[in-house]
């Protein structure tokens, strides 16, 4: 199955969403303001912007890992918390977040254990997922025995075990080298085309966003907001030739200019980025 399979039913919808954080000093920081965004089923959407534009917060709002200060987040036709409880999405973080004490297949099986699925169906599904990310030979390996790219493939397999409608990816290849990253990009596109899933992909990399996406959502910081949405009309399937085409470079330039015009008032702001980190760390408690 190739080409755009985009339909008009919104699978994720954010309406008038704001997100405020209370700083330790007592001040309030607006991380996101006036976010309106509809994602169509089967779409591949990237969120791109400078550090501190709130793109990760936006992703976490969709996943109900944090809650909006105002506005409504609808996922798969239901409120975001319900969608989380129904396991309507899978999540991939920047770090693979594999459990050291579980083998590859046990890590992929984890979500299915949480629903108490019947064993044979479970094992079949795990095998299918490892087939999908092309790691069936590594089922009994521990994470430490895999390379960074392989670990991230395991994390993707784990995120897909539920056959979720949506895959949320938070800078999943940020820590990988350029060569591995390009291979992983093609891998993700292949999986996206095979499964027909909707992907929301946070990234720092303009080429990555353009290569992967049907639409690139460009954001700016202070306060975080959407400045432009760029439709990427590159033909599919995309491969090495795509990266070398004139249209590809034109799209990259377009996104880069959108980012630059969004900078507007002064330099980008890292304080939100540090808050997002602090918030993630705060969960340890």
């Amino acid at each position: 199955m190739t080409g755009e399979r985009v339909t008009d039913v919104p699978v994720v919808s954010l309406a008038g969403v704001d997100k405020d954080f209370a700083l330790p000093g007592g001040a309030t920081m607006t991380a996101l303001t006036g976010i309106d965004l509809d994602l169509r089923r089967g779409e591949f959407v990237s969120l791109i912007g400078p550090s501190g534009c709130g793109k990760s917060t936006l992703l976490r709002l969709i996943g109900d890992l944090t809650q909006p200060s105002a506005g409504v987040v609808t996922v798969n036709g239901k409120p975001a918390p319900q969608a989380r409880l129904d396991r309507d999405y899978g999540m991939v973080f920047q770090a693979p977040v594999l459990f050291d004490w579980r083998t590859v297949e046990e890590n992929v099986r984890l979500p299915l254990e949480l629903t108490g699925q019947e064993r044979t169906a479970r094992d079949a599904r795990v095998a299918e997922m490892l087939e999908l990310v092309e790691l069936p030979d590594f089922a009994r390996h521990y994470p430490y025995q895999l390379s960074g790219g392989m670990q991230q493939r395991v994390a993707i397999a784990r995120a897909l075990t539920f056959s979720p409608a949506i895959l949320l990816m938070d800078e999943p290849f940020g820590a990988l080298d350029e060569m591995t990253r390009e291979r992983m990009n093609s891998e993700v596109l292949r999986i996206w085309e095979q499964t027909g899933i909707t992907v929301v992909f946070v990234t720092h990399s303009i080429p990555e966003a353009v290569f992967l996406s049907s639409r690139v959502v460009v954001m700016s910081a202070r306060p975080g907001r959407i400045t432009r949405i760029v439709e990427v009309d590159l033909p599919r399937p995309r491969g090495v030739e795509t990266r070398e085409s004139r249209r590809y470079f034109e799209m990259v330039t377009q996104v880069r200019e959108a980012l630059r015009s969004g900078e507007g008032s002064g330099t980008s702001d890292d304080s939100l980025a540090s808050i997002e980190r602090a918030e993630a760390e705060g969960l340890t408690g």
């Binding site: 890992l65 989380r84 999540m91 973080f93 977040v97 993630a280 969960l283």
Partner: peptide, 9 residues
């Protein structure tokens, strides 16, 4: 912290 967030997701 990410492991806890994963479990929450």
């Amino acid at each position: 912290a990410s492991s806890l967030e994963l479990m929450r997701s």
